[in-house]
Design a protein around this nucleic acid. Structure first.
Length: 111
DNA sequence: ATGGAGGCGCACA
DNA sequence: CTGTGCGCCTCCA
C-alpha cells in the first residue's frame, strides 16, 4: 500500500487486536496465537498478550475470552485478575477441567 | 540506537 | 505431566 511515512491507513496493531478480540462470541474463547493469526500476524501472539495487558480501564473488550493455547489462564503482571477471568468465563458457561484448563475442543472459537 | 521485557507457542527431554 | 530453551515481534525506558 502506498503510505507516505507510516501513516497508518489501518488501525494500529493494538486496535486490530482489540477489534478482533471483541468479536469473540460469548461462551467461547480464543488463544493469543489465534487472534494474531486472524489479523494476519501469525508471529505476534505475544503482542496480543501485551496489547491486552495494557488495556485501558474503560473498554468493551472481552479480554477474559482470550487464553493461551493450552486453554489455561495465563499468569499476568497484576494479580487477582486470573480468578476474576475464570469467574467471568464460567459465568458464560465455559467449563474448566479439574486441572483448571478449558476444554478447547469444545469452547475454542471457531472463527 | 540498544536492550530488556512481555497474559505466547512449540519442540524436546 | 513438568521444566527448559529458543524463536517471534513490538513496545518502552
Amino acid at each position: 500500500m502506498a503510505k507516505a511515512k507510516d501513516q497508518p491507513l489501518e488501525p494500529s496493531l493494538y486496535q486490530q487486536i482489540y477489534q478482533m478480540v471483541s468479536l469473540i462470541p460469548q461462551g467461547r474463547v480464543a488463544s493469543y496465537g489465534q487472534i494474531a493469526r486472524l489479523i494476519g500476524l501469525p508471529r505476534n501472539a505475544r503482542q496480543v498478550g501485551y496489547a491486552l495487558a495494557v488495556l485501558p480501564e474503560e473498554h468493551e473488550i472481552p479480554w477474559h475470552r482470550v487464553v493461551n493455547i493450552k486453554g489455561e489462564i495465563s499468569a499476568r503482571s497484576k494479580a487477582g485478575y486470573e480468578d476474576y477471568q475464570r469467574i467471568l468465563l464460567e459465568d458464560e458457561g465455559i467449563e474448566f477441567s479439574p486441572a483448571g484448563r478449558i476444554y478447547l475442543k469444545q469452547f475454542l472459537w471457531d472463527a
